[in-house]
Amino acid sequence: MEGLLDFVLRDVLTRVGGVDRCVSEFIRVSGNLLTDRVFLSYIPELKNGGRTLAGVPVRAQLLGSDPGCMAENAARLAALGPEGIDLNFGCPAKTVNRHGGGAALLREPESIAAVVAAVRRAVPAPLPVSAKMRLGYDDAGLARECAQAMEQGGATELVVHARTKADGYRPPAYWEQIPAIRAAVAIPVVANGEIWSVADALRCRSLSGCDALMLGRGMVADPGLALAIRAHDQGQAHQPLAWQALLPQIGRFWDLVCADLEPRQRAGRLKQWLNLLRRRYPEAQQAFDEVRVMTDQRVITAWVRQVADQ
């Protein structure tokens, strides 16, 4: 989730709880051997044993199409100690696809197999190498072949975003198409896409046959979603995360943004998160309306302090 689920939100969301593992924003590999500094800029958690400050492991995600270059970068990244390496074959962005990366490779199962195999050979055997895919590019005609290519290349786990590249992020997600992929491979399959609530999670599990779920925008919009799903699984009564309980995390988020991001990025990142929170919290609408017109960091900081202290 480029430009959204960065290390700042990973820190805040894993503090709320319920998350087993995170995956970084994708790191684009396009012909150069990236430096440690680049990897650390995407995944500062590598300085903390590959975990968020709440102790949740972070898997590093690479995106690219050249097997040799992907392998070299995976080897360098693996030396920094991530929880694992994840390979992105699902990004629908036009700029990425135009250069043969992300979902564009879903038209070429043999190329997928080559990339996965090269990365698998390049990193230590105990290090997990997983992959994320969509159902396909224009349609799901090659979904099983792509999944099998990832497995044959050495992937230990597969996440399926249940839409094609052509679908983008438009609802619905076609969870009912995941069982055919599960039947085609022996590795664990994780379902992803359009999970905004506990009810969505239960329906996704029922239709996909997957026990494990990857939460994306749904977790950003409702930071208590993973906890709620876990409570349901354990048969426990669970109160949704209240807006009042979330306010200290918004304060921490702003502090981290101001400490770690460029000044020009700071106001936009807070507005971006509040915009998504509106989907779950009516109170976020008023907060978004108030912050939307602010640009001065000092003014926003005063607003955050006032709100967080309520």
Rank of each mutant, 00 (worst) to 15 (best):
I112V: 14
I112K: 06
A113M: 04
A113F: 00
A114M: 03
A114W: 05
A114V: 05
V115D: 05
V115Y: 07
V116H: 12
V116P: 15
A117L: 13
A118H: 08
V119K: 04
V119M: 03
V119N: 05
R120N: 10
R120I: 06
R120K: 12
R121K: 09
R121E: 10
R121G: 02
A122T: 01
A122F: 08
A122S: 08
P124M: 13
A125K: 15
P126K: 07
P126S: 08
P126D: 02
L127P: 11
L127G: 12
L127Q: 13
P128E: 10
V129P: 09
V129Y: 02
S130A: 08
S130W: 06
A131I: 00
A131H: 01
A131L: 02
A131V: 00
K132E: 07
M133N: 13
R134V: 00
R134K: 10
L135M: 13
L135I: 06
G136Y: 15
G136F: 15
Y137T: 14
Y137C: 03
Y137W: 14
D138K: 07
D139S: 05
D139E: 01
D139K: 04
D139H: 10
A140R: 11
A140K: 07
A140E: 13
G141S: 14
G141L: 09
G141A: 13
A143P: 03
A143L: 14
R144N: 07
R144Y: 05
R144Q: 15
E145Y: 02
C146G: 08
C146A: 15
C146E: 09
C146S: 12
C146N: 14
A147S: 02
A147I: 04
A147G: 02
A147R: 02
A147N: 01
A147W: 01
Q148H: 04
Q148E: 08
A149T: 11
M150E: 06
M150D: 09
E151S: 09
Q152G: 02
Q152W: 04
G153V: 03
G154K: 08
G154H: 04
G154N: 09
G154P: 09
G154M: 09
T156I: 12
T156Q: 07
T156M: 07
E157R: 14
L158W: 12
V159K: 12
V159Y: 07
V160P: 14
V160M: 05
V160L: 03
H161P: 14
H161F: 15
A162F: 10
A162R: 14
A162N: 15
A162S: 15
